[in-house]
Design a protein around this nucleic acid. Structure first.
Lengths: 116, 116
DNA sequence: TGATATATATAAGAATATGATATATAATTA
DNA sequence: TAATTATATATCATATTCTTATATATATCA
């Protein structure tokens, strides 16, 4: 597996919650919005999306209702819960801390190398 | 698993390479340096460190020699290879891109929410 | 002598991601 | 009209990475 694919692990639920913060949406639309907003960087696949959505629903981070409109494929509409909003805020903070520490260590080493 | 533990996935090899960029070191010392430089944030465990080191050696990112000094426990000294240095540079860039895109999506959503 | 720090290592299991496959409808194009 | 593409949800087998627990062994300090 490439480095960047490993990196992406664990970000899925946070990205989904980010999209749902704007308003209710269904699986396929979430996938498309993520790709669109990152200019194709986040290429979410169905095999990752749907199991993640199911798990997030079990954890009460999101809720769903089926929409059965005539002349359209049926869709499962997901909404972010208050617990989901908390999770997103907390996750955002934790990611920022993690990146700070990661680049702290990497920059420290790069600086030490220059001095040699 | 907590969000932050998921986040950490895939960063291990990059952190190890960062430490080795400064100079050769052995497993236990790498573990301690990482904890020290991140003020305790990165708590690397032996069970994660040693298998990762073995794998990285197989991928030729690092090389090792046994050191058998008298009056000391024997140590396996690891050195970063040219391939490892490339890997670190590339990984650093990829992490930065990932970070940019992640917060791009998250901030976009937070802004859209404010406007509602 | 016992506790702690140093030092390397593996096994079992959990969590997350990928590639492949399945099913089905709506809209578009040839 | 037929074929293709886009929409829409879902699972399975497999791979990868991480955690908890366990094992072994030496040096140092109280």
């Amino acid at each position: 597996m490439s480095e960047i694919q490993q990196v992406r692990k664990g970000s899925t639920s946070l990205l989904i919650l980010s999209v749902l913060l704007e308003g209710p949406s269904h699986g396929y639309a979430i996938m498309r919005k993520l790709e669109e907003r990152s200019n194709g960087y986040f290429k979410m696949t169905a095999a990752l999306l749907y199991p993640t959505l199911h798990q997030m629903e079990q954890e009460h981070l999101i809720e769903s209702v089926w929409e059965n409109a005539v002349g359209q494929r049926r869709k499962k509409i997901y909404t972010i819960t208050p617990k989901g909003k908390e999770h997103l805020t907390k996750g955002n903070t934790e990611w920022k801390r993690f990146f700070d520490q990661l680049f702290n260590v990497m920059d420290y080493s790069a600086e030490a190398k220059k001095v040699q």
